[in-house]
Nucleic acid binder design. Structure first.
Lengths: 202, 202
DNA sequence: CTTATCTTGGACTAGTCGTTCCAAGATGGG
DNA sequence: CCCATCTTGGAACGACTAGTCCAAGATAAG
């Protein structure tokens, strides 16, 4: 009986993701969301609720569509350190060039947003951090099995390092850091993780 | 002949630093600055100019009073890796406990602020990054001279790593990360930097 | 085609934003 | 004390904020 939506909520949410990601959710008004999506305020509020819930939905979509596939690929890649290197290579490339250059990472940016105090969003940030660490840990585990790592290395700690490093890359890229700087920072970590007896330094 | 200011601009700026640092400059209104400082709008605008200039002034004060002394101490400490370890120990402690717990770092937070697009502020961020890298580089240089480092290690790249790591620590701490996680992430990097032939792993 | 139900556009609210302005107040040299 | 000069409190500005509301429009089952 009733009318149906005259738009695709999924498509709209993707536009909101890009808006919040590029400009920052805190400083992006509902008016700009309305303009970017072409929706009316009524439809927006009826579909997503208020701004806080819209931000949470956008963050979840970003995680699901942008972050999760990459982390799954990393965790599934059993090549060890080369998998980690490839992850960071692509990360730096995505942060410094192309469509999303200098946008940083929506998750990283949200760490400093006012929304970080919202319980629901905080949980998403913590869950993402856990997932990021888990993926890194899986890759390091593979590296260990292939004898690529320093024997005494603590995998949990190493995974934390790589996660923190990724946040650093994301953050600095939003302020316009050079890709070469970021790449160098990554390289030094991975060199430090490698087993010195089996690795020829570059 | 003229009247003089009825307040101490330096004291006021310190209050503004804390306000912007804890809450975030983007989401802190002039009204809140007025309330926190006790100044009137007139005095505020006459002394500091608009909000953008106030944010820049607060950032510069933060760098001068909070960041510079620590970086100078790091660069002057010739003990090598222990100096770096001590730097991060104090950093994690300051970020996770005490008066400024969960505030993160004003410089780090500014990376995702709308003000990062302002040329003046961008330059301050880049200058700080250079200073941070330089201090790390000095500490690594000392570590090399004392034979604490892997022989093949690239000091420039290592300094970048440590800078990115510091950003990661600052960022995650603002979202409420546990000190233990952050400490572990730091430890794994420093272990990787140490000379494996002269270091007994912990 | 009717009708119940949902969606939509757009006007509207109450509040906040950064900023400006001016009369009143404070200051200290002459 | 006088007065030029700066500072101060507070009102006011237009633009924007998130969010609400309702009449008009669209839909599809009966």
């Amino acid at each position: 009986m009733p009318d149906v939506k005259h738009f695709d909520p999924d498509l709209v949410l993707e536009q909101v993701v890009r808006l919040f990601w590029e400009r920052g959710a805190d400083v992006t008004g509902i008016a700009q969301v309305v303009e970017a999506t072409g929706l009316s305020r009524s439809s927006l509020y009826a579909t997503f609720g208020g701004k806080e819930q819209l931000q949470a939905a956008a963050l979840r979509r970003y995680l699901q569509r942008r972050s999760r596939p990459v982390l799954e690929a990393l965790a599934a890649d059993e090549s060890g350190l080369p998998a980690v290197a490839a992850f960071f290579e692509r990360l730096v490339a995505a942060r410094c060039t192309g469509e999303h250059a200098r946008w940083g990472c929506l998750v990283t940016n949200t760490h400093t947003s006012a929304a970080r105090e919202v319980a629901e969003i905080r949980q998403v940030l913590d869950a993402h951090h856990a997932a990021l660490c888990a993926a890194m840990h899986a890759a390091l585990q593979a590296a260990r099995e292939r004898g690529q790592l320093r024997p005494a290395m603590d995998l949990e700690a190493g995974a934390q390092t790589l996660a923190l490093l990724a946040y650093g890359v994301n953050l600095r890229s939003r302020a316009g850091a050079e890709a070469a700087e970021l790449t160098a920072g990554v390289r030094a970590v991975l060199d430090g993780f490698s087993d010195p007896t089996t690795t020829e330094e570059r």
